[in-house]
Computed example of a mutant assay.
Amino acid sequence: MTEIHPGQRVAMLVDAQNLYHTAQSIYTRNIDYSALLEKGVQDRELTRAIAYVIRADSPEEESFFEALEDIGFEPKIKDIKTFSDGSKKADWDVGLSLDAVTLAKKVDTMILCTGDGDFSRLCSHLRHEGVRVEVMGFESSTADELVEATDRFIDLSERPETFLL
């Protein structure tokens, strides 16, 4: 697989809900999206950065979405769905996967920021297509099959002072 080199075209796709819940449950802190983007991309050429977020009618949400844009992310926003039994659901798995497959033709490296094992098949597909796949996540909440399906795993919990606010 391709090694890291300057000029390498990179896309970063962030499963914001996954990272948020892990950072909150383990550290009671938030993700530093600026550091995530900077350390993930390194000295390579950023083609696209997308953060997949959920709107849950929280007062600070809009300022968070704006902050993501200021950092360099394109926020893709989905409203949370509430069902008649009171249960709630919101995930971006299909949307993130479709974007990754579409972007694969335009990049050398795809960085997925998640711990969700559902993306392991996506990683295998991208690698089969010749795309280098890197995953950034917290080791304790990252599925083993996801780590095994990547070219490189970056454990955010090794440097909480860098990746958390």
Rank of each mutant, 00 (worst) to 15 (best):
A11W: 00
A143D: 03
R132F: 00
Q17L: 14
L68G: 04
E161V: 11
M1W: 02
D155A: 14
E129N: 06
F64C: 00
E38M: 02
T82H: 04
H21G: 00
F83D: 08
E148D: 15
L165C: 08
E69F: 02
L126E: 08
L46H: 07
G115V: 13
S140D: 10
M1A: 14
R127A: 02
G130Q: 10
D144P: 02
S124I: 00
N30G: 12
M110G: 06
S25N: 14
V41T: 15
K88F: 05
S63N: 13
R44S: 15
E62I: 05
L156Q: 06
V53K: 09
Q42L: 06
T22S: 14
I111V: 13
F138Q: 01
I50S: 04
K81N: 11
D15R: 04
I80V: 12
P160M: 03
Q42C: 09
K89A: 14
H125E: 11
Q42P: 06
S87K: 14
D43P: 04
P6Y: 04
G95P: 11
L68N: 05
V107M: 08
I26G: 03
K88V: 13
L126R: 05
V41M: 01
A16Q: 11
Y33D: 02
T82G: 01
E129D: 10
M12L: 15
K78F: 04
D32K: 02
E38I: 02
G117D: 09
P160E: 00
S84V: 15
L103E: 08
L165M: 09
Q17H: 06
D32W: 03
L126W: 06
A90W: 00
T142Y: 05
P59Q: 14
T102M: 07
L36A: 04
S157R: 05
I31Y: 04
S25M: 11
L146K: 03
K81P: 03
D32Y: 02
I154V: 15
F64G: 00
V94Y: 01
R121I: 13
R127S: 13
V147Q: 06
V133P: 02
S140G: 10
A149Y: 01
L164W: 05
F65E: 09
A67C: 07
D155K: 02
D91M: 03
D108N: 15
S58P: 00
I80Q: 12
H125L: 14
R121D: 13
F65R: 12
L122D: 03
K88L: 10
I80W: 07
E62Y: 06
N30S: 13
E45P: 00
E69D: 07
A90S: 15
C113E: 01
R44F: 03
